[in-house]
């Protein structure tokens, strides 16, 4: 097993019901399949940890998320042009934001990695570029509308599949995408058609939005 059993009790609140796979969800025997299954398990586990922070201000869950994401945020910011001091400061603020905004995370529309990325990106704009970041109006699940566990797992699976597909891209294209995300390309330098395989994940998110709109009525 990739991750140790949590010391935290599983709560009955929404995220607590997300199935946590002790076994691999895929039946396949080959290594790639096992690796993908482990990654989905990990992603789903991060979702649960965010739920523990939201519901119980669980410091153990936070420490676990911190151990995984804080170094990644810092590396990401340093690759985006921040010096070590600023990257450290930003990474701390990003992780503090994760704590304070745990209730705004929607696991039917994003993995925790994606959500942390958006927080880090906004912090980068704020601190490195000294600009405001206009954001689309927030859509969140109300207290009465809870995310569906199967939907949560599906979006985590899709995120893992996309990451695998990105790793398979021709080096030149992958390099361009990386440059775009590390802030080394301006919008005019990015291709009109990116050619990224985003169809499936887009459809998933679209479905989640439709259900959310329906629940809001």
């Amino acid at each position: 097993m990739l991750v140790a059993e949590t010391a935290t009790e599983i709560t009955t609140r929404p995220f607590g019901r997300v199935p946590y796979f002790a076994e691999t969800p895929h039946k396949g025997k080959n290594e790639t399949c096992k690796k993908a299954a482990r990654r989905v398990t990990e992603e789903t586990r991060w979702v649960m940890m965010v739920g523990y922070i939201r519901d119980n201000q669980d410091q153990k869950a936070f420490a676990e998320l911190f151990g995984h994401f804080a170094p990644r945020v810092k590396s990401f910011l340093m690759k985006s042009g921040a010096d070590a001091g600023m990257a450290e400061e930003c990474a701390q603020e990003v992780m503090a934001t994760l704590w304070h905004k745990a209730h705004l995370f929607d696991p039917t529309r994003a993995s925790v990695a994606t959500w942390v990325f958006t927080i880090a990106r906004n912090k980068r704009i704020d601190m490195l570029r000294k600009q405001r970041r206009p954001e689309p109006d927030e859509l969140t699940w109300g207290p009465e509308a809870e995310p569906d566990a199967a939907e949560v797992v599906e979006i985590q699976q899709e995120s893992v599949r996309l990451a695998a597909a990105l790793a398979e891209l021709p080096e030149k294209q992958r390099d361009l995408v990386q440059k775009a995300f590390f802030g080394d390309l301006s919008h005019s330098e990015i291709a009109e058609e990116t050619g990224l395989p985003l169809g499936t994940i887009k459809s998933r998110i679209r479905l989640a939005l439709e259900r959310l709109r329906h629940a809001m009525k």
């Binding site: 994401f69 990644r72 945020v73 590396s75 990401f76 690759k79 529309r109 994003a110 993995s111 990695a113 994606t114 959500w115 942390v116 990325f117 958006t118 880090a120 990106r121 689309p136 859509l139 899709e158 995120s159 996309l162 990451a163 990105l166 790793a167 995408v177 990386q178 995300f181 590390f182 990224l196 985003l198 994940i201 887009k202 459809s203 998110i205 679209r206 939005l209």
Partner: peptide, 18 residues
């Protein structure tokens, strides 16, 4: 909004790998 979510997932993968 959904297309943006898909592109942000790419960003999430970049973060995960860095």
């Amino acid at each position: 909004r959904a297309r943006l979510g898909a592109f942000e997932t790419v960003g999430g993968a970049m973060l995960e790998a860095s």
